[in-house]
Design a protein around this nucleic acid. Sequence first.
DNA 1: TTTAAAACAGTAACTGTTACTGTTATTAGT
DNA 2: ACTAATAACAGTAACAGTTACTGTTTTAAA
Lengths: 128, 128
Amino acid sequence: MNLKHSRQRDSILEFLATRKDHPTADTVYMNVRQSFPNISLGTVYRNLTLLADIGEISRIRLGDGVDHFDYDTSPHYHFICSECGGVFDLNMEVTDTLTKAAQENFEGKIEGHVTYFYGRCNNCNPKH
Amino acid sequence: MNLKHSRQRDSILEFLATRKDHPTADTVYMNVRQSFPNISLGTVYRNLTLLADIGEISRIRLGDGVDHFDYDTSPHYHFICSECGGVFDLNMEVTDTLTKAAQENFEGKIEGHVTYFYGRCNNCNPKH
DNA sequence: TTTAAAACAGTAACTGTTACTGTTATTAGT
DNA sequence: ACTAATAACAGTAACAGTTACTGTTTTAAA
């Protein structure tokens, strides 16, 4: 891979680094436009995909039809609120016992699994 | 909910019952057209959504950008092959230990989780 | 510097899905 | 059986998120 430096890409990565809420491409676009008013949504998508491909960030799919992006590439679980759509990290250990269990009765090679949790976040959960 | 009977819906459900490979809306469309040549893709989507809403079938999201549908609504895990996109059931127990563990350090209410596995299926995994 | 190519902005196209519109099929009440 | 109300239909347009194309600009190696 023969990458060239780009200020737009820097800016996208820099923005992601400031956020812990796993923004979507569109949110990235909105924000990076403050530094690069002419940046194209295509550029944002291209760079998010590239950064994810080289492992600088990770792309997260949570069943809401939109891709989220995370500067934190360490393995951890996510929670998505069914009410407000907010995404949160979970403070919880990641194990490979699930993958091992799955491999037991399965021919073929299981390489990993995707897990995310859903429900009501603290804000949306009715207090009582 | 005040449902009326429809032959198209029957046919969609009937087709799904014959398949264990979790077809997409488009696959359902292709097949049901053999009995109903004029059926509309919109009708297929509408009925799949309706059937899923009333719990007759389940809708499965596996991160490949397409919805899959399953006649088997009992809780079980799925595997998706990164190579051919094939979807398979896993013969493996479903527990709620994950949900409990996730709830530990999380304010708000965790209602459930989605888990699926990926890798190479038996056909796509290089033999040796 | 010059120059090859990576990256860009802008925009069109594509995919999966949902919504709209006027017509047909179903079913409950006579 | 007939009628009337409406669920469901076919066909098609619209929509959202994402990817691909085109001609121009930026980067960085020679």
